[in-house]
Simulated assay, not measured.
Amino acid sequence: MSGPASVRFEDVTKRFGEVVAVDSISFEVEPGNLVTLLGPSGCGKTTTLRMIAGLELASAGRIVIGGRDVTALPVTARDVAMVFQSYALFPHMTVAENVAYGLTVSRVPKAEVRARAERALELVGLAGYGARLPSELSGGQQQRVAVARAVVLEPDVLLFDEPLSNLDAKLRRRVREEIRELQQKLGITTVYVTHDQEEALAVSDRIIVMNQAVIAQEGTPRQLYEEPASRFVADFIGDANLVEARIRAVENGHAQVEAGGLGLQLPARGSAAGPALLAIRPRSIRLHPEPREHAVRVRVDKATYLGGHMEYEVEAPLGPLFVVDLAVDRPLPAGSDAWMTLAPRGVTLVPA
């Protein structure tokens, strides 16, 4: 590995017969960054990843890795390594043999193979596990073996295809932290595919949201969460209540907004006076058992206790809303009335 490499797509399209899986997309992954391709099933994210790897060849456009045009090059001519969703470990080989496999078939000297495999296992926290078989490991440990097998090749670019989908929720959180820590320690350029928005927010330097074969929005996790560029992104990233509102006036980049009896002042984000769409995050809604100034009355339709927080479905003048409330010590019963205000953050106008 000569150092972190950039990855650049220039108007890349991929067709399968009459089906356009990826439609003229352009983006760049900066050297040493972890960028996530995020979107629903069928949006084109995995096809994009496979084109970086060379497992699929682009129908049009140009792919550049580390300044080298690799558009027409096969897998073997690209210095990339992929961690697959299924792990794809050889069951009859030991952990050490699995990790060393790529080096062995490349005819690297045996002493170097052994040393690099041991170092890779140590990096992923599996020192001393080399003699075991994959069947003797937990799902999380198998995932780490798959990562070690990719890292040992010292690639310019590391690719992850839905790497945590086979793990339970608690283990997913731990392994995603391990992957992020390892990526930062190695400083390796990484492209990561998932459909899980929380996972993407947790691990990424930047996120590319894809929908229907095109890029819907690109930015940092905070930008995508706080400044969604469309209804789709607002709804897909982090959940949002999307409600109709009206902009009364725009002045100095700020909009005077009215929504269901609530008056708000928000960044205009290019919007003009007239009908508008408002995205309200569930944690930005405050419910109060007693009336208060500048609050609107709502009806609690459903209340669910989830240990660390309450989830409510309420009927408000803005329409039906989903609410996440940390005040578990004073739950509001279903069927009761409450009064609603909005927090300063987590409420944004969505550009038309």
Rank of each mutant, 00 (worst) to 15 (best):
S6P: 10
A115S: 15
L349F: 06
N98K: 09
T341D: 05
F16W: 13
R114M: 12
P344T: 11
I179L: 15
N241C: 04
S284I: 12
P74L: 07
A53K: 00
L349N: 02
S59E: 03
I63Q: 02
N211Q: 14
P275A: 12
S41K: 00
V298S: 12
G308A: 11
L171V: 13
Y305E: 00
K110G: 15
P4Y: 08
Q223Y: 01
P282Q: 09
P109A: 14
V20F: 08
T48G: 09
T71I: 01
N166G: 02
S135W: 14
L73E: 11
G270N: 04
Y312C: 11
V347Q: 03
L57A: 15
L133N: 10
H92A: 13
R15L: 15
P275L: 03
R62D: 07
M310Y: 11
V193W: 08
A150P: 00
K170C: 11
A295T: 04
L123V: 08
G319C: 02
R269V: 10
V350N: 11
H288K: 05
L287P: 01
A334P: 08
E28D: 15
E154K: 13
L262R: 08
G42H: 03
M340R: 02
F16K: 07
R269P: 03
D205C: 05
L306Q: 15
L278V: 04
R330K: 12
E181F: 00
G102R: 10
L73A: 09
L224I: 06
A216M: 02
E218T: 13
A216R: 05
L38V: 02
E199H: 02
G66V: 09
E162I: 00
D325M: 09
N211P: 07
A229K: 13
G308M: 10
L262S: 13
S41A: 05
V175L: 13
A276N: 04
L123E: 10
V70D: 05
K185E: 06
R174S: 15
G67N: 12
G54L: 08
I25F: 10
A115H: 10
S138L: 01
G67F: 08
M340T: 11
M1I: 05
L332E: 11
R15I: 09
R292F: 07
A295H: 03
S336G: 08
R132H: 11
R299P: 01
A131F: 00
E226H: 09
A21T: 01
L126H: 01
V243T: 07
Q183S: 04
D239N: 15
A88I: 07
G44R: 02
Q142Y: 05
P333R: 03
S284T: 07
D325N: 06
T189R: 06
P163T: 00
P221G: 10
L89M: 07
G66E: 06
T348W: 04
V175D: 07
N33H: 15
P267N: 08
R345W: 13
P134E: 11
F160A: 08
L277H: 01
I207Q: 10
N211K: 07
V324C: 09
R299K: 12
F90S: 08
P109Y: 14
P267R: 14
P275N: 08
V347I: 09
E251R: 14
P331M: 04
V203Q: 01
A120I: 08
I179W: 00
V151R: 02
E10F: 00
